[in-house]
Protein backbone atom coordinates (compact mmCIF):
# COMPACT_ATOMS: atom_id res chain seq x y z
CA UNK A 1 0.00 0.00 0.00
CA UNK A 2 1.23 3.42 -0.92
CA UNK A 3 1.81 6.09 1.70
CA UNK A 4 3.35 9.55 1.79
CA UNK A 5 6.03 10.34 4.36
CA UNK A 6 6.93 13.92 5.25
CA UNK A 7 9.91 15.07 7.23
CA UNK A 8 10.78 18.60 8.34
CA UNK A 9 14.30 20.06 8.62
CA UNK A 10 15.60 23.50 9.49
CA UNK A 11 18.32 25.72 8.08
CA UNK A 12 19.40 29.27 8.81
CA UNK A 13 20.87 31.26 5.96
CA UNK A 14 21.24 34.78 4.65
CA UNK A 15 20.51 36.21 1.23
CA UNK A 16 20.02 39.37 -0.73
CA UNK A 17 17.46 39.68 -3.48
CA UNK A 18 19.01 41.59 -6.35
CA UNK A 19 18.88 41.10 -10.10
CA UNK A 20 21.71 42.30 -12.32
CA UNK A 21 19.14 42.57 -15.12
CA UNK A 22 17.36 45.41 -13.28
CA UNK A 23 18.34 49.00 -12.59
CA UNK A 24 19.08 50.11 -9.03
CA UNK A 25 15.64 51.71 -8.84
CA UNK A 26 13.89 48.68 -10.25
CA UNK A 27 15.70 46.38 -7.78
CA UNK A 28 14.59 48.60 -4.91
CA UNK A 29 11.00 48.75 -6.02
CA UNK A 30 10.84 45.02 -6.78
CA UNK A 31 12.60 43.61 -3.74
CA UNK A 32 12.11 46.38 -1.15
CA UNK A 33 13.95 45.67 2.11
CA UNK A 34 15.20 42.38 0.68
CA UNK A 35 17.43 44.41 -1.64
CA UNK A 36 19.57 45.68 1.29
CA UNK A 37 23.14 45.20 -0.05
CA UNK A 38 24.32 43.73 3.24
CA UNK A 39 21.76 40.94 3.10
CA UNK A 40 19.53 39.54 5.82
CA UNK A 41 18.66 36.06 7.10
CA UNK A 42 15.88 33.60 7.79
CA UNK A 43 15.22 30.41 9.69
CA UNK A 44 13.91 28.23 6.89
CA UNK A 45 11.94 25.03 7.35
CA UNK A 46 12.29 22.43 4.61
CA UNK A 47 9.54 19.83 4.36
CA UNK A 48 10.34 16.84 2.15
CA UNK A 49 7.50 14.53 1.10
CA UNK A 50 8.33 11.14 -0.41
CA UNK A 51 6.00 8.31 -1.36
CA UNK A 52 6.14 4.62 -2.07
CA UNK A 53 4.75 1.23 -1.23
CA UNK A 54 5.01 0.38 2.46
CA UNK A 55 7.57 -2.44 2.69
CA UNK A 56 5.93 -5.38 4.49
CA UNK A 57 9.22 -6.39 6.09
CA UNK A 58 9.92 -3.00 7.68
CA UNK A 59 6.55 -1.21 7.67
CA UNK A 60 8.27 1.74 6.04
CA UNK A 61 8.09 3.76 2.81
CA UNK A 62 11.83 4.25 3.23
CA UNK A 63 14.19 4.11 6.14
CA UNK A 64 14.15 7.47 7.86
CA UNK A 65 17.87 7.23 8.58
CA UNK A 66 18.54 7.03 4.81
CA UNK A 67 16.44 10.15 4.20
CA UNK A 68 17.95 12.02 7.16
CA UNK A 69 21.53 11.22 6.21
CA UNK A 70 20.92 12.19 2.57
CA UNK A 71 19.31 15.51 3.49
CA UNK A 72 21.99 16.22 6.10
CA UNK A 73 24.78 15.57 3.61
CA UNK A 74 23.33 17.04 0.42
CA UNK A 75 21.03 19.83 1.60
CA UNK A 76 21.69 20.95 5.18
CA UNK A 77 25.48 20.84 4.87
CA UNK A 78 25.18 22.87 1.69
CA UNK A 79 22.83 25.62 2.85
CA UNK A 80 22.83 25.83 6.66
CA UNK A 81 24.68 28.89 7.98
CA UNK A 82 25.58 30.05 4.49
CA UNK A 83 25.12 33.24 2.55
CA UNK A 84 23.05 31.91 -0.36
CA UNK A 85 24.33 34.58 -2.76
CA UNK A 86 27.86 33.17 -2.47
CA UNK A 87 26.83 29.71 -3.70
CA UNK A 88 27.44 28.57 -7.25
CA UNK A 89 23.77 27.90 -8.05
CA UNK A 90 22.89 31.49 -7.19
CA UNK A 91 25.74 33.11 -9.09
CA UNK A 92 23.33 33.92 -11.93
CA UNK A 93 20.00 33.38 -10.19
CA UNK A 94 18.32 35.41 -7.45
CA UNK A 95 18.19 33.34 -4.22
CA UNK A 96 14.48 33.79 -3.68
CA UNK A 97 12.76 31.10 -1.67
CA UNK A 98 11.08 29.94 -4.89
CA UNK A 99 14.48 29.31 -6.48
CA UNK A 100 15.89 27.68 -3.34
CA UNK A 101 12.85 25.40 -3.20
CA UNK A 102 13.44 24.30 -6.80
CA UNK A 103 17.16 23.76 -6.14
CA UNK A 104 16.42 21.52 -3.15
CA UNK A 105 13.83 19.60 -5.17
CA UNK A 106 16.42 19.01 -7.91
CA UNK A 107 19.04 17.79 -5.42
CA UNK A 108 16.65 15.30 -3.81
CA UNK A 109 15.08 14.24 -7.11
CA UNK A 110 18.51 13.58 -8.62
CA UNK A 111 20.18 11.87 -5.67
CA UNK A 112 17.67 10.16 -3.40
CA UNK A 113 16.72 6.73 -4.69
CA UNK A 114 14.97 5.08 -1.72
CA UNK A 115 11.51 6.58 -2.40
CA UNK A 116 9.72 8.78 -4.91
CA UNK A 117 9.99 12.52 -4.27
CA UNK A 118 6.51 14.06 -4.24
CA UNK A 119 7.06 17.58 -3.01
CA UNK A 120 9.42 20.08 -1.42
CA UNK A 121 7.85 22.72 0.79
CA UNK A 122 9.99 25.58 1.95
CA UNK A 123 8.86 27.94 4.69
CA UNK A 124 10.82 31.19 4.74
CA UNK A 125 8.93 32.51 7.76
CA UNK A 126 5.74 31.38 9.46
CA UNK A 127 3.90 33.62 6.99
CA UNK A 128 5.57 32.65 3.70
CA UNK A 129 5.79 29.18 2.26
CA UNK A 130 6.49 27.72 -1.17
CA UNK A 131 5.92 24.29 -2.65
CA UNK A 132 7.42 22.62 -5.71
CA UNK A 133 6.34 19.27 -7.08
CA UNK A 134 8.51 19.19 -10.19
CA UNK A 135 7.71 20.40 -13.69
CA UNK A 136 4.00 20.79 -14.58
CA UNK A 137 2.31 18.95 -11.72
CA UNK A 138 -0.35 20.45 -9.48
CA UNK A 139 0.12 20.62 -5.71
CA UNK A 140 -2.31 18.41 -3.80
Amino acid sequence: MKAHLSRRYRISASHRLHSDAMSTEENRSTYGKCNNPHGHGHNYTIQITVSGQVDVKTGMVCNLSDLDSFIEREVLARYDYENLNTLQEFADEVPTTENLCVQIYEIVHRGFSHAHLEKVRLEETMMNSFEYTGPAKAVS
Binding site: A3, H4, L5, S6, R7, R8, Y9, T49, L64
Partner: peptide, 13 residues
Protein backbone atom coordinates in the same frame (compact mmCIF):
# COMPACT_ATOMS: atom_id res chain seq x y z
CA UNK B 1 6.39 14.20 16.01
CA UNK B 2 5.98 17.73 14.67
CA UNK B 3 8.74 16.92 12.17
CA UNK B 4 7.57 13.53 10.93
CA UNK B 5 4.19 12.59 9.52
CA UNK B 6 2.56 10.13 7.14
CA UNK B 7 -0.40 10.62 4.81
CA UNK B 8 -2.55 7.74 3.59
CA UNK B 9 -5.20 8.22 0.89
CA UNK B 10 -6.62 4.70 0.73
CA UNK B 11 -5.76 1.34 -0.73
CA UNK B 12 -6.42 2.37 -4.31
CA UNK B 13 -4.42 5.59 -4.32
Amino acid sequence: TADLFVDFYGEGS
